[in-house]
């Protein structure tokens, strides 16, 4: 039995005839922040989708806390504390900020805990508290991303999967969000898998990282190692 929180071994996934993942090996220990980096179409999002059950892998092994979650239904995974912030935020534009957050706690029954977590995310992102009654669609891009992360936190995740939280946001906003991600990791002991294109930013945040190219993990190591790696600097950090 492995001691990893999440472990992927030789995972193959495909959309029809197009093979998106050609044997991905990846693991996370409890309390870590790990980044999954790579260019467009490398298979980062498919990897996340395979973990969360939105795509069923052709073959391979995916274990969450020693249990196989291959082919598990998304709602089961959420109940187990494996929660994803989907790419492109995907908040509910017609629901208010507060309702969005309550949707995040959809599967929970402990009222007091939910209220406490609402306080927590409002402290994390005070701007959301001032916008609580507005509908999600009226928020700015950065606020929407904060809302999406907060919504995921409302489900009390033990493993949080973040799909490109920096997508289409201003650098200043990205910095704020990344600071908060670190805070969540320290405060809540939440394990985080971060999928990013912005390698420079991500490597300054995470403990370890994997680099994907065309459906395979091509490089992995600690953040410091990768930051100093000549090939990584060439390919992802702009020399």
């Amino acid at each position: 039995m492995s001691s990893f929180m999440l472990e992927l071994a030789q995972v193959h996934s495909a959309y029809g005839n197009v093979e998106a993942l050609k044997g991905v090996d990846l693991n996370l220990s409890e309390g870590e922040i790990v980044a999954l980096l790579g260019a467009n179409g490398a298979g980062k999002t498919t990897t996340l989708a395979s973990v969360t059950g939105l795509v069923s892998p052709r073959s391979g092994r995916i274990d969450f806390e020693g249990q196989s979650i291959l082919g598990a239904r998304p709602e089961y995974l959420v109940s187990q504390g494996l929660i994803m912030v989907p790419e492109g935020r995907r908040i509910f534009p017609g629901l208010s900020v507060l309702e969005n957050l309550r949707m995040g706690a959809f599967l929970r029954n402990d009222k007091a805990g939910v209220e406490a977590d609402l306080d927590y995310v409002f402290n994390l992102f005070p701007i959301l508290a001032t916008r609580a009654k507005q509908t999600g669609g009226t928020l700015s891009g950065g606020e929407q991303q904060m809302l999406a992360i907060s919504r995921a936190l409302m489900g009390r995740p033990r493993l949080l999967l973040l799909d490109e939280p920096s997508l289409g946001l201003a650098p200043l906003v990205i910095r704020n969000i990344f600071d908060t991600i670190r805070k969540i990791n320290i405060d809540q002991k939440t394990t985080i898998l971060l999928v990013e294109q912005n390698a420079n930013l991500a490597l300054n945040l995470v403990h370890r990282a994997y680099i994907m190219t065309t459906g395979r993990i091509t490089l992995s190591g600690t953040a410091a190692e990768l930051l100093n790696d000549e090939s990584v600097r060439q390919a992802y950090l702009g020399g």
């Binding site: 969360t52 709602e75 995907r90």
Partner: peptide, 12 residues
Amino acid sequence: EDEIACQAMGIN
């Protein structure tokens, strides 16, 4: 509003 987000919230 959004089916994929719903799945991410654990709604069947």
